[in-house]
Amino acid sequence: MSLRSINNSNETQLITLCKQGDRYACKQLFETYSGKMMALCFRFARDRNEAEDIMQEGFVRVFTKLHLYSGTGSFESWMKRVIVNTAIKYRQKHIVKHNYIELDNLKFMDNSEDIIDQLSKEEILKLIQTLPDGYRTVFNLYVMEGYSHKDIGKALGIEEGTSRSQLAKARNLLKKKLLKLYKLAG
C-alpha cells in the first residue's frame, strides 16, 4: 500500500521523525516509496526474490544513512540514488557468469518500437530481466536513471567504451526478443 497524498511538509516531518528513530515514521516513508523502488529494483534484478533482496538492502541503507540527507533536493531522488548504488553493489557481489553467445548486429525491422508500445509495463520489465546482468545494469543506468557512460564507467568500474558497447548490445538483444515475441504472438 502506498500513501499517495503525502505532501512535502508532511514528508519533511516524517523524515525528521525517522531520523530521531521513530519507527512508525520510517514505515510510513517505506510505504510511500516502496512501489516505485520495487519497480526500480526489479529492473536490476534477475527475479523477484533478488529484487526484494536489493530492496531490503537498499532501504536499510536509506534509513541508516538518513542523517546524510541534508534536505536539499528531492528525497525521492536521494533515495533512488542510494537504492541504485545498492543495486550496483549487489550486482557486483553476485556476478553470475553467463555463457551467452554474442549476437550479430542483425538488422531488424523498423517496427520494434511499435511492438514495445503494445507491451504492458510488466511485460517490458520481464523482458529487461531476460537480459544478461551486465547489459541489464548498463541499460537501466543509462536509460532509466539517466547516467552518462562516464558515470556508468565510474560506478561499475568499466571503461566508458565498454559501457557504450554493452548498451548497444542490450538494445539489440531487446529488439531480438521483441521480434521473437512478435513472431510467437503472431
Partner: peptide, 21 residues
C-alpha cells in the same frame, strides 16, 4: 526505443510482500 521504454517504466510501481518491511 530507449525513450519508449523509459516512458513506459518511469512511473511504474510494483507491489511488495508484507514481510519485507
Amino acid at each position: 526505443i530507449d525513450q519508449i521504454i523509459k516512458n513506459k517504466l518511469k512511473h511504474s510501481e510494483m507491489p511488495v510482500s508484507d514481510a519485507l518491511w
